[in-house]
Design a binder for these strands. Structure first.
Lengths: 186, 186
DNA sequence: GTCTATAGAGGGATAGAC
DNA sequence: GTCTATCCCTCTATAGAC
């Protein structure tokens, strides 16, 4: 009853780990099949090309990202607290290993040529932005900038801080964003 | 008297163009020597390895980045105007072709393993951040957050907006940052 | 200092046996 | 559906002639 993990999932799990930590271009088919302990024929049976494997990887990341956020923020109803928890979630994501946002990484690696990849990444980021716009709309706030502009720029700060964490390998910038938005919402 | 451009510069110019537009890993030595119209022996005479070529590329980008900013903002003395011009500079950089920040791209591609690369990139970003901190310190501003925190988060917004421009292939986010900081400084 | 030729490894993908 | 064997291409880097 061991080895219950199906071949397809083993491939995708190994590919996910390698694409994220080594990069897509630096990960070869041969390494994937070696670490997943399967034959090359099996890989191409499940995924017609390396690009299909990339798309499956991105879809999996997308799903896990929002599932993770939901679990992380469940039980919290106040918009102000949910906004702060949003940063905490991104801080928590960076904790075990600092390799940055997988969506930003893949665009940096392969560009925006591939339309399916481009749309997956753009869609993921827009979904985050919309979620934040919704939270800020519910907020009881009356500051110098309107709520939508604040929401959009808060999103950009978090994006910038995530990139910064990847480069500098610390979460100081993310903590700074939290401090900033706390004062703005006070 | 034609062909005054030295071999070393021809190599570096071609490599710069290809590394930036195609990516480092996706650019082969063979393509570089073909487009620079030189022999492979000449390349390795000037650059001991592809990695040395990468370091030369990054140092060139660093130099040109700050030279470009200086030219772009010369004659402007008011800190408020210089801050706004900082965004305009980054908007202008994105105008001819949308390929994002070369420093962020290279970290996304090769990670932070290589210490020389990591330090070049981190140094470049810190230099930008320090420059902005200086400008905000000179500012006559009395808002809800202190100047240093505002400067750091302004930098993060611009970083986030640059990444966003790379993904979405438009400069809307950068325009949004400008609007935001204008209201904050008003 | 620039050239040609080539080494030696690894890339993605396919064919056909079982 | 999983396996092995293999094709053809490209990669970075080196050797040695000129």
């Amino acid at each position: 009853m061991k080895e219950k993990v199906k071949v397809r999932d083993r491939i995708l799990n190994v590919a996910t780990d390698l694409f994220y930590h080594q990069g897509f271009n630096q990960t070869g088919i041969n390494q994937i099949i070696a670490e997943a302990d399967i034959a090359i024929g099996s890989l191409y049976n499940h995924f017609p090309s390396k690009n299909d494997l990339l798309l499956a990887y991105l879809r999996k990341q997308e799903e896990e990202w929002f599932d993770g956020l939901e679990k992380f923020t469940q039980g919290i109803s106040q918009p102000r607290e949910r906004i702060l928890k949003f940063i905490d979630y991104r801080i928590a994501q960076q904790q075990p290993d600092f390799y940055g946002c997988p969506f930003i990484k893949i665009i940096a690696e392969i560009g925006t040529q591939d339309q399916q990849v481009q749309q997956l990444v753009e869609g993921h980021k827009n979904r985050q932005r919309m979620l934040l716009q919704g939270l800020f709309q519910q907020l009881d706030y009356d500051g110098p900038v309107d709520k939508k502009l604040l929401a959009d720029n808060f999103f950009l700060m978090v994006e910038g801080a995530t990139v910064n964490a990847t480069i500098s390998r610390n979460i100081k910038a993310l903590e700074g964003v939290k401090k900033f938005i706390k004062k703005m919402m006070a």
